[in-house]
Amino acid sequence: MTVRTREWQLAARPHGEPTPDDFRLVELDRPDPAEGQVVIRMLVMSVDPYMRGRMNAGKSYAARWEIGETMRGGAVGRVVASRSADVPEGSLVLADAAWRDVAVLDAAHVRVLPELPGIPPSYHLGVLGMPGLTAWAGLFRLAEFRAGDTVFVSGAAGAVGSLVGQFARLSGASAVIGSAGTPDKVRWLTEELGFTTAFDYHDGRVADLLAAAAPDGIDVYFDNVGGEHLEAAIGAFNEHGRAALCGAISAYNAVEPPPGPRNMFQMVSKKLSLRGFIVGDHTDLQPAFAAQVPEWLRAGDLVVRETVREGLENAVDTFLDLLRGGNTGKMIVRLAAEDG
Rank of each mutant, 00 (worst) to 15 (best):
G194C: 05
L193P: 00
G132R: 02
E191F: 06
S174W: 11
F195V: 09
L170K: 04
A180M: 12
L142K: 15
W99H: 03
A159N: 08
S122E: 15
A147S: 15
A159K: 02
G172E: 07
L125T: 06
P183E: 09
G194I: 05
F167C: 03
D184K: 14
A98L: 01
A97I: 08
A135N: 05
V186Q: 13
V164H: 03
L193I: 03
D149L: 07
L189G: 06
A103R: 06
G155R: 05
A168V: 10
L92R: 14
V186A: 12
R141S: 14
G132S: 11
A168Y: 05
W136A: 06
E144L: 00
L170P: 01
L113E: 10
F140C: 01
V176S: 01
G161Y: 10
A180E: 06
L92N: 12
V112F: 04
L113A: 13
L193D: 00
G172F: 06
P121T: 08
L170G: 02
V127C: 08
R141P: 00
L116Q: 15
S154N: 12
A180R: 04
G172D: 07
D96C: 07
L92E: 10
A108W: 04
L125K: 07
R100M: 05
L128Q: 05
G172P: 05
V186T: 11
F145E: 01
S162L: 10
G126N: 03
L92D: 12
T182V: 09
T190D: 12
G118H: 13
V176K: 03
Y123G: 00
W99Q: 02
G129L: 04
V127A: 09
R169E: 02
A137V: 09
G132H: 03
A157T: 04
T134D: 06
D149R: 09
V112Q: 05
L189P: 03
V104R: 04
M130H: 05
S122H: 12
A98K: 01
V164R: 04
P120T: 13
W99D: 02
F195N: 05
